[in-house]
Every structure is written in C-alpha cells, then in structure tokens.
Amino acid sequence: VVSQCEHCRQEKLLHEKLRFSGVEKSFCSEGCVLLYKQDF
C-alpha cells in the first residue's frame, strides 16, 4: 500500500499507521515515526 508519509510528505510504501489525537497518520519508516513523535 502506497500512502503519503506524515513526516517526510513523500508517497512511499506504508510502514505503519498510528493514531494521534484520534486521527490516523501514515508513516513510511520507523525513523519518520520517531521524528514525528518528537515534533508532536
């Protein structure tokens, strides 16, 4: 499944979907998940 990563904003293969404040977010890698959590 290809989707837009919430952190790097590129269309890539889906690595993980997480829920932040009740909204589902898509990420392409574990690195982007960690960076997004730092900024959140």
Rank of each mutant, 00 (worst) to 15 (best):
V1G: 10
V1T: 06
V1I: 12
V2T: 14
S3K: 07
S3R: 07
S3T: 13
S3A: 09
S3E: 05
Q4K: 15
Q4R: 15
Q4P: 15
Q4S: 14
Q4V: 15
Q4L: 15
Q4D: 12
Q4H: 15
Q4Y: 15
Q4M: 15
Q4I: 15
C5Y: 00
C5I: 04
C5P: 00
C5S: 00
C5L: 00
C5E: 00
C5W: 00
C5A: 02
C5H: 02
E6A: 15
E6W: 06
E6C: 13
E6L: 08
E6K: 12
E6I: 09
E6M: 02
E6Q: 13
H7S: 08
H7L: 04
H7C: 13
C8K: 12
C8A: 01
C8R: 03
C8Q: 00
R9K: 09
R9G: 14
R9M: 04
R9T: 05
R9F: 05
Q10K: 09
Q10V: 04
Q10G: 04
Q10L: 03
Q10F: 01
Q10T: 06
E11V: 08
E11R: 07
E11C: 12
E11H: 15
E11T: 08
E11P: 11
K12Y: 04
K12S: 05
K12P: 00
L13K: 12
L13N: 08
L13G: 04
L13A: 05
L13M: 07
L13P: 08
L14T: 07
L14G: 03
L14K: 02
L14V: 09
L14I: 12
H15S: 13
H15I: 12
H15C: 09
H15L: 07
H15Y: 12
H15R: 10
H15V: 10
H15A: 06
H15D: 13
H15E: 04
E16V: 15
E16C: 09
E16D: 04
K17S: 05
K17I: 13
K17D: 11
K17V: 07
K17R: 11
K17C: 04
K17N: 06
K17G: 03
L18P: 13
L18W: 07
L18T: 05
L18A: 11
L18K: 01
L18M: 10
L18H: 14
L18F: 10
R19P: 09
R19E: 14
R19T: 15
R19S: 14
F20K: 08
F20D: 03
F20W: 09
F20A: 09
F20R: 05
F20V: 12
S21E: 13
S21L: 06
S21F: 03
S21C: 05
G22C: 03
G22L: 00
V23F: 12
V23K: 08
V23Q: 03
V23L: 09
E24L: 02
E24I: 05
E24Q: 05
E24H: 05
K25Q: 01
S26E: 04
S26P: 01
S26D: 06
S26Q: 02
S26R: 09
S26V: 07
S26W: 10
F27R: 03
F27G: 10
F27T: 02
F27S: 06
C28P: 02
C28Q: 03
C28S: 02
C28T: 01
C28L: 00
C28Y: 01
C28E: 00
C28K: 03
C28A: 00
S29N: 02
S29C: 11
S29P: 04
E30D: 10
E30T: 09
E30V: 09
E30G: 08
E30Y: 08
G31W: 07
G31L: 08
G31H: 09
G31P: 01
C32P: 01
C32A: 03
V33Q: 06
V33G: 07
V33W: 07
V33M: 14
V33A: 12
L34D: 11
L34Y: 04
L34T: 11
L34H: 10
L34V: 07
L34N: 14
L35T: 09
L35Y: 05
L35D: 14
L35A: 15
L35I: 04
Y36D: 07
Y36C: 06
Y36V: 05
Y36A: 10
Y36H: 13
Y36S: 04
Y36Q: 07
Y36P: 09
Y36L: 02
K37D: 09
K37F: 04
K37P: 01
K37M: 00
K37E: 04
K37W: 01
K37Q: 08
Q38D: 15
Q38P: 02
Q38S: 11
Q38R: 11
D39P: 11
D39L: 10
D39V: 03
D39T: 09
D39R: 14
F40W: 08
F40S: 12
F40G: 10
F40C: 11
F40L: 14
